[in-house]
Simulated scan of single mutants.
Amino acid sequence: MSTNDPEVRFDERFSDPGSGATPWETVRGVLESAQLFWITTVRSDGRPHVTPLVAVWLDGQLHFTTGAAEQKAVNLGGNRQVALTTGCDHWDRGLDVVVEGVAVRVTARPALERLAAAWAAKWNGEWRFRVTADGFAHQDGGASLVFAVRPAKVLAFAKGGFGQTAYRFDGGRLAEPRT
Rank of each mutant, 00 (worst) to 15 (best):
G171C: 07
E25L: 11
T51D: 14
A103I: 07
V56D: 04
G60V: 12
G160Q: 07
V146L: 07
R13F: 02
V98A: 14
E25D: 15
G141H: 05
E25T: 15
A116F: 09
T41Y: 05
G161P: 02
G78A: 15
G67R: 10
G67W: 03
V97K: 03
F10P: 00
P23A: 06
F136K: 00
R80K: 09
E113S: 08
V99P: 05
D89N: 10
V99C: 10
L58I: 12
I39R: 10
D89R: 10
R13E: 04
V104N: 03
N4H: 11
S19G: 02
H90P: 00
T85V: 15
L174G: 06
L36P: 00
V54Y: 07
N124L: 12
P151G: 14
D59F: 02
G172S: 07
A152P: 01
P52R: 11
P23Q: 00
F169Y: 08
D45T: 14
W57I: 08
G67L: 05
P177R: 02
A73W: 03
L174Y: 10
V74K: 13
D140H: 08
L53D: 00
L62C: 09
L31F: 05
G46V: 07
F129Q: 01
G135N: 01
A143W: 00
V30N: 07
T3Q: 06
N75T: 08
R150D: 04
W24R: 04
D170H: 13
A69R: 11
F37V: 10
D92P: 05
F169W: 02
F10R: 02
F162C: 02
R105K: 04
R130T: 15
V104P: 01
G135K: 00
V146Y: 06
F157M: 10
Q81K: 15
W24V: 13
N75D: 15
K153A: 14
N124F: 12
G141D: 02
